[in-house]
């Protein structure tokens, strides 16, 4: 009975569900004896090992025969083609154009080819309002003019779902990835929903970087509110402020920068002047829409000054920094891990 109870408390601790009242109960029990401590450590080891559970069956070997079954199933389905062409013709209002770096921000490229290769879908089923979606490919950026005359620049590998009719209440946009918003003033709030947070503004310019691990907002002008979805706390962000919400630690905080770099990816170029590596890496994350993890906390505080990098690849910039700071970097599961290194 007792053992079950302790196991349940430990599990709650591992999964962040331990209530305040039980915290001291558990820590008291653990510190009561070396045996208790050893017990709790061994359960943690088991829990950690269980994350890598590999079942004794191989589904890879079964894929070929399963594919035959799937093939015959889809051939039996009646095919009702809705071509991409007709989807575009139905798209009435929002203007989309492919961005060629450098030119498009000035609007010169306004006549660039529409919809070069973006996946573009209309979704008429989302409540009262009508939404359109845009997903960009690797190395592809898109500019969207919304019908309220707000502009959204969408970075590579990102998905935006946006209103394409005048909304009755709020102007709602969904984002997974990186986008810069220039929001036209209106009395209807402009709301951006990410996987884990909600951003509310009236009229302003700011960048959002959102994925399942968190949401980062960098404000260029005006006032922006950032609120995690599962919380009633929020923070207000002003000019040159960065607001960050981290899903795993549930931390919500803000930082003040001396200059604005949140839209570097739109222009294709960026430079650093005595910026901390922590800030440098968050600019790079935003610019290339990648995740970067710095293992070494000391490295975060080092300062970095650079020439202007124009249309450089991430690897070429990391290679330069690697020479200076002596860290190693590796791409693992889509995340760049920075290991070791020091300021000198």
């Amino acid at each position: 009975m007792k053992e079950y109870f302790i196991l349940q408390l430990l599990h709650k601790q591992f999964t962040g569900q331990l209530e305040e009242v039980d915290k001291s109960l558990l820590s008291d029990w653990v510190s009561q004896s070396p045996e208790n401590k050893a017990f709790s450590d061994s359960i943690l080891k088991i829990w950690q090992a269980s994350a890598n559970f590999a079942p004794p069956v191989s589904f890879e070997n079964r894929t070929e025969s399963a594919l035959d079954r799937f093939r015959s199933a889809i051939r039996q389905e009646a095919i009702t083609p809705a071509t991409q062409e007709s989807t575009i013709l139905e798209q009435p209002t929002a203007k989309i154009r492919t961005l060629t770096p450098l030119k498009w921000i000035s609007g010169i490229a306004a006549s660039a080819i529409i919809l070069l290769s973006a996946v573009f879908l209309l979704d008429k089923n989302s409540g009262d309002n009508s939404y359109a979606s845009l997903a960009t490919l690797s190395e592809q950026k898109q500019e969207i003019q919304l019908i309220d005359r707000s502009t959204v620049w969408v970075n590579e590998k990102s998905t935006v779902k946006y209103f394409d009719e005048v909304p009755s209440k709020e102007r709602k946009v969904f984002l997974d990835g990186v986008a810069f918003f220039d929001v036209e003033k209106s009395d209807k709030p402009f709301v951006i929903e990410t996987d884990n947070a909600v951003i509310t503004v009236l009229g302003t310019k700011f960048n959002v970087n959102a994925d399942k691990d968190g949401t980062t907002v960098m404000v260029k002008e005006g006032k922006v509110q950032l609120q995690p979805k599962l919380s009633n706390k929020h923070i207000i962000l002003m000019e040159n402020m960065t607001g960050i919400y981290e899903v795993d630690t549930k931390k919500l905080y803000r930082k003040q920068a001396s200059s604005y770099k949140g839209d570097s990816w739109i222009r294709g170029g960026y430079s650093f002047e005595d910026d901390s590596l922590e800030d440098v890496f968050s600019v790079l994350e935003n610019h290339y829409n990648v995740d970067i993890i710095i293992q070494n906390d000391d490295l975060k505080k080092c300062v970095f000054t650079s020439p202007v990098y124009q249309d450089s690849t991430l690897e070429s910039v990391l290679d330069v920094m690697q020479l200076i700071y002596g860290f190693n970097y590796a791409l693992k599961d889509g995340i760049y891990h920075i290991e070791g290194g020091s300021c000198s």
Partner: peptide, 25 residues
């Protein structure tokens, strides 16, 4: 984030000529 090839496969699903091979891929 989704990699390039996945996005391509998904977009090919939309075109009748390539839908079946995209689904199989």
């Amino acid at each position: 984030m989704t990699d390039n090839t996945d996005r391509n496969i998904i977009s090919l699903l939309n075109e009748p000529s390539s839908a079946e091979s995209a689904a199989e891929a």
